[in-house]
Structure formats: C-alpha cells, structure tokens
C-alpha cells in the first residue's frame, strides 16, 4: 500500500465535485470513492490500485441507503449494505432473486460491510490482474498484454471476451440487476442521470481498463427495479466449488412469467461465465411463447452459449453453463408462487 489522503464526504454534491478529475477511466482515476472498502482496500494493499486520495462516502449513508417498495417497483439506495437488502422482507417476497443473489455472495462479514454500489463495481478475480508481479495485464496496464489467455484460465470468461482481456465479472447481484431491467441513478458534477443497468458495464474490447461508463467523479446513488409480472417467480442458481464464500463457476438468474405452462415472458442472466453482467436475450427468445420443458430449456441453453469461446482451462464452462441454466429454468418453473 502506498500513502494516500483520506477525507470524509460532507454532502453528495461536494463529494462528486471533489472527485471529478481528468483520467482515462473512473477506476484508474487518482481520486476514488470509499464505501464498504471490501474491494478497494484489498486491491490497495496488494498494490493493484494506487489512488492518491480517497473520499469516504459513508457519511452519506443515511440519505443513500433507503430500501423502498411500492407499485412502481423497488428502489435500493447505493449505500445500502448487502446484508440489509438481502434480508429485507419486501425484497425477499417481491424479488426473491435479489435476496438470493446477495445472500449467496461473499461472506457474512463482507455482506455486512459491502454496499450495493460498490458490489456492482467489484473488480475481477483474475489472478494475473490481482498480482502486479505479472507484467502483462491490459486491465491493469493498458497495452501490456494478457497473461490469462494462454495461462491458467479455469475461472475466466467464455462470453464477451476479447483478444485483450478474458477476465470474468465476479459478481452475483449484478446478474439480478441486468435480468430485471433495472436502472441506475448516477450523480455527477455535470448533473444527475439515469441509465439502464445494462449500459453501466462495458465489454473489454480493446479497452479492458475502462470497465464502466461512469466518468471520474460520478457516483451511483440508487438502483430501481420496475414492477413486472416475472419478478416473483425468480431465482438465482449459483454453482461453485464449495458451499459458501466462493465465486460462481457458473450461475444463472431466471425470472419467469408463466401462464398455463407457457412462457409469457422471461428474463435470463448468466454469471461466472462472462466478462460483464450478462443478459442472454437469445435464451429468452428461445423460450418466449413456448412451453417450458427439458427440451426447450436445453435449446435455450444452447442459444445462450452459441457464441462462447474457450481458452483451455475453461473449456468446460459452456457445458457447465448450459447445465446450470437448464437446472435453473426447470427449478423456476416448479416454484409455487403466490399471485
């Protein structure tokens, strides 16, 4: 870790104004916001992130951690802690997939610290990214190359990869956000904006060091989930090497509006297999208007991984990803849901 200046935010406007600075991407800017700190401090200790100044936004917690549910949907403040949201009765009842995704993430200690805003921005677990002694990492050092493509890549992505980066997006909650048509409210010194969650993360392409569409100084303030018929019949299935405290090898979010065994509408997102939170429109299209059975589920899973590209260590991931999605689809169809 290197020396840095620390200050506590007074209010939202001054925080985003103070953090607005020239940089090629938000994540590499010399000024960073500090919320739960569960990713940032970790990466600072191992020298991967070297911010010069931290603005602690925890003083804003009161105004930015609200959880509210009404007919228009669910609003979650960006500074709400993962554990608070996961166990909130409205969330558990109306959007079970959100609760499940949060509960299956990290450990109890981390969930008590980590905020939703920080959670969706958590950085990849690619070991070559997380150890500065590996020189080639385009995400850490643009243009330096990628150690993972021909290295150890069991945990790496098979969807959304590029020649420059194959690092997997590690989170769980973001799969729920992208599946459920969530939007994100963002505060910035040039004004506030609201975007679909699907516009937040950027594919690595040839700029893997630019992970989101946030500008330096911009701060996520709230997530909004619309009220939709498929929200209640939803689940998160996480397949991993151990029972808890482990990232997904493959995961799936399914939210289903089922009428008489026929798919009226469906939302599907995949985790552990892609470089960014990954919604599978192809899989959804394969099921919409069709009965949901083993064979249809298999076809949807085929569609979901039709563009998958593997790199040796992760050759098994398309097959596991398909099995995960089929299992999730059949399980969600079986759920008993109160109307």
């Amino acid at each position: 870790m290197r020396p840095f200046a620390y200050e506590r935010a007074g209010d939202l406007v001054s925080a985003v104004t103070a953090a607005t600075i020239e940089a090629d991407s938000q994540i590499r800017a010399p000024i960073q916001f500090l919320a739960g700190g569960t990713t940032l401090l970790d990466l600072m200790k191992i020298d991967v992130m070297r911010p010069e100044r931290l603005i602690d936004i925890n003083p804003l917690e009161k105004s930015l951690s609200e959880i509210s549910f009404d007919r228009s949907g669910l609003r979650l403040g960006a500074l709400a802690r993962m554990s608070a949201v996961a166990h909130h009765p409205d969330v558990e009842r109306e959007y079970p997939v959100i609760s499940q995704a949060l509960k299956l993430g990290a450990s109890a200690q981390l969930r008590n610290m980590a905020t939703l805003g920080g959670n969706v921005l958590q950085r990849t677990r690619c070991p070559y990214f997380r150890d500065v002694s590996w020189h080639a990492c385009n995400k850490r050092d643009p243009g330096s190359g990628c150690s993972a493509r021909q290295g150890l890549n069991r945990n790496h992505a098979v969807l959304g990869t590029s020649d420059h980066c194959i690092a997997a997006y590690p989170g769980d909650f973001a799969q729920a956000l992208i599946a459920l048509d969530a939007t994100v409210s963002i505060a910035g010194s040039k004004g506030d904006r609201r975007i679909p969650f699907s516009d937040l993360h950027r594919l690595p392409a040839d700029t893997p060091h630019i992970e989101t569409t946030l500008s330096p100084g911009e701060l996520i303030t709230e997530f909004h989930f619309p009220a939709r018929p498929w929200a209640r019949r939803s689940l998160y299935l996480k397949v991993r090497d151990r029972e808890s405290y482990e990232f997904a090898v493959a995961s799936a979010v399914v939210a289903l509006d089922l009428a008489d065994g026929v798919v009226r509408d469906i939302r599907i997102a995949l985790g552990g297999v892609a470089t960014v939170p990954w919604r599978s429109l192809a899989a959804e299209d394969a099921l919409r208007g069709k009965p949901l059975d083993e064979s249809r589920a298999g076809m949807a899973a085929e569609a979901a991984f039709a563009t998958a590209k593997t790199f040796g260590g992760n050759d098994f991931k398309p097959e596991l990803g398909r099995a995960t999605l089929v299992r999730a689809l059949l399980a969600v169809a079986m759920l008993e849901v109160r109307s």
Binding site: R125, D131, E243
Partner: peptide, 16 residues
Amino acid sequence: YVNKDLADYMIPVNAD
C-alpha cells in the same frame, strides 16, 4: 504459482 491466497487456494468452509 498463480493462486497464492486463501481466496483462490481453496479449502472447505464451515458450510462444506
């Protein structure tokens, strides 16, 4: 070595 920490060098957790 690549997985030099307790996040990536796996051991069972209580739930296992």
